[in-house]
Amino acid sequence: MPKVLVVDDDPRMLMMLRRGLAFEGYPVLEAQSGTEALEKLRDHDVDLLILDIMMPDLSGLEVLRKVRTAGETLPVILLTARDKPQEHVQGLESGADDYITKPFSFDVLLARVRLILRKRTPETSELRYADLVLDLQRHQVCRGQRVLHLTPLEFKLVQTLLENPERVFSKPMLLDRVWGMEYFGDVNVVEVVISGLRQKLEQGGESRLIQTIRGAGYILRED
C-alpha cells in the first residue's frame, strides 16, 4: 500500500488521520511541524503528503515550496481552516494536488486520497530500464533474455528501483520501502542484499545497473 505522511500540529487531528488511514490499510508516518515533516521526507520514501497549512515553525506552504524546489513530485493534499478562494489558488499554484477545508468528513478525505493515488498508479504491468524488465503480472524479472531467480526481498528491491530510476535511495529509505517500518535490524543488510542482487544481474557479463553513490546510497543508472 502507498505510504502516507500526515503533518499537523493538532494531536487530535493527527490521531484521527493516523487511525483512519491505518484502518484502510495505508502505512502512516506523522509529523507535528514543518521541520519534522522535511526530516521525515528526507529519511523515508513517501507516496502521499497530507499537509496542514497553519503550523508554528514552517507553514505548510513553505514546506510544499521546499518539496517542489527539491524536485519531488509526490502528490500533496493541503489542509486548512481558511476558506478564502485566493488561499485555495495560492495553495494550488504552490504545487498542491488538492485542497481540503477543515472541518471535513474523513470519508471525503479518503475519497480524495484514493483518487490522487489512482491517478499516480501506472496502468502498465511492466517496468523497464535499459535491458532490465520486471513483469508484475508474471512476478518475473529479466535481464536481456535471462530470467532472474530472485528472492522476495530482491524482487521488491528491483521493483522499488525500477519505479524510481536514476533516483538515489539511502539505506534507511530502502529499509523503509522494502523491509517495512517494522524492521529494526542492522542497516547493513541492505549492502548484503544489493551485493547478491548485483551478482544475479551481472551473471551474464552485463554492465552494472545498481550504482553506489558514496555517502548517499544506491541508484538505478547505466554506466
Rank of each mutant, 00 (worst) to 15 (best):
residue 140 Q to F: 01
residue 108 V to E: 14
residue 103 P to E: 10
residue 208 R to D: 11
residue 64 L to H: 09
residue 166 E to P: 03
residue 217 G to E: 06
residue 35 T to I: 15
residue 7 V to K: 14
residue 31 A to G: 05
residue 132 L to N: 05
residue 195 S to P: 04
residue 54 M to A: 11
residue 146 R to K: 08
residue 151 T to K: 00
residue 105 S to V: 08
residue 97 D to W: 02
residue 191 E to D: 15
residue 18 R to Q: 14
residue 35 T to Y: 02
residue 43 D to Y: 06
residue 221 R to K: 15
residue 106 F to D: 02
residue 20 G to T: 10
residue 33 S to A: 02
residue 200 K to N: 01
residue 62 E to I: 04
residue 72 E to Y: 13
residue 199 Q to L: 11
residue 68 R to H: 08
residue 117 L to C: 06
residue 8 D to R: 02
residue 209 L to R: 02
residue 155 F to E: 12
residue 113 V to Q: 04
residue 33 S to N: 10
residue 70 A to M: 04
residue 98 D to Y: 14
residue 167 R to D: 12
residue 174 L to S: 01
residue 55 M to H: 07
residue 130 A to F: 09
residue 100 I to W: 12
residue 43 D to V: 12
residue 185 G to I: 01
residue 205 G to M: 11
residue 18 R to C: 08
residue 220 L to F: 06
residue 159 Q to V: 06
residue 17 L to D: 09
residue 137 Q to P: 06
residue 146 R to A: 00
residue 58 L to S: 11
residue 73 T to F: 08
residue 54 M to K: 13
residue 16 M to G: 00
residue 207 S to A: 15
residue 6 V to Q: 05
residue 214 R to S: 14
residue 112 R to A: 05
residue 26 Y to N: 14
residue 57 D to C: 08
residue 163 E to T: 12
residue 127 L to E: 08
residue 61 L to V: 03
residue 120 R to W: 01
residue 173 M to R: 15
residue 141 V to N: 05
residue 103 P to Q: 03
residue 160 T to N: 02
residue 155 F to V: 02
residue 31 A to W: 03
residue 14 L to F: 08
residue 3 K to D: 10
residue 106 F to T: 06
residue 102 K to Q: 07
residue 10 D to Y: 00
residue 201 L to V: 00
residue 139 H to G: 06
residue 134 L to N: 06
residue 83 D to M: 03
residue 138 R to E: 13
residue 136 L to M: 14
residue 53 I to N: 09
residue 42 R to G: 04
residue 83 D to Q: 10
residue 70 A to C: 08
residue 192 V to P: 05
residue 24 E to R: 14
residue 28 V to F: 06
residue 90 Q to P: 01
residue 187 V to N: 09
residue 36 E to D: 12
residue 32 Q to M: 07
residue 129 Y to H: 11
residue 123 E to S: 15
residue 7 V to T: 08
residue 25 G to C: 07
residue 203 Q to T: 07
residue 178 V to D: 11
